[in-house]
């Protein structure tokens, strides 16, 4: 098993865990964490893809950029979670749907 195969398998597993978390979890903070896990899988895939195509620098710089962007996502997500908790008194995503009909 080459290092690349390990990286691909690791990326798929991280994506799978994140996806399961998004589908199954109700707590908003856990949802943000699940999203992070998915994005980490993508970062791993980017680095592996850079190595596979021989453009290692490009792959790594994309990965760094994604980490920065992803951090912003996490921050905004957690800030939202704080506001949601304040306004609804709960972090349960089911209680966020105020649309009735």
């Amino acid at each position: 098993m080459t290092i690349l195969q390990v990286a691909a398998a690791g990326a798929l597993i991280l994506l799978g865990i994140g996806l399961y978390g998004l589908l199954a979890l109700r707590n908003l903070i856990k949802v943000v964490i699940a999203l992070q896990i998915m994005v980490k899988g993508v970062v791993l895939a980017l680095v592996a893809a850079g190595s596979l195509s021989g453009q290692i620098n490009l792959g790594q710089s994309l990965a760094v950029t994604l980490i920065v962007a992803d951090t912003v996502v996490a921050v905004v997500g957690l800030a939202l979670a704080v506001q949601v908790r304040r306004r609804f008194g709960s972090l349960d995503v089911r209680e966020l749907s105020t649309l009735r009909g």
């Binding site: 996806l19 998004l22 589908l23 199954a24 979890l25 949802v31 995503v93 009909g101």
Partner: peptide, 17 residues
């Protein structure tokens, strides 16, 4: 058709996926 439109985050993600 209304049954599908729950407005729940998880259901939306499932739809996207």
């Amino acid at each position: 058709a209304r049954i599908a439109q729950t407005g729940q985050l998880n259901w939306n993600v499932a739809g996207i996926v």
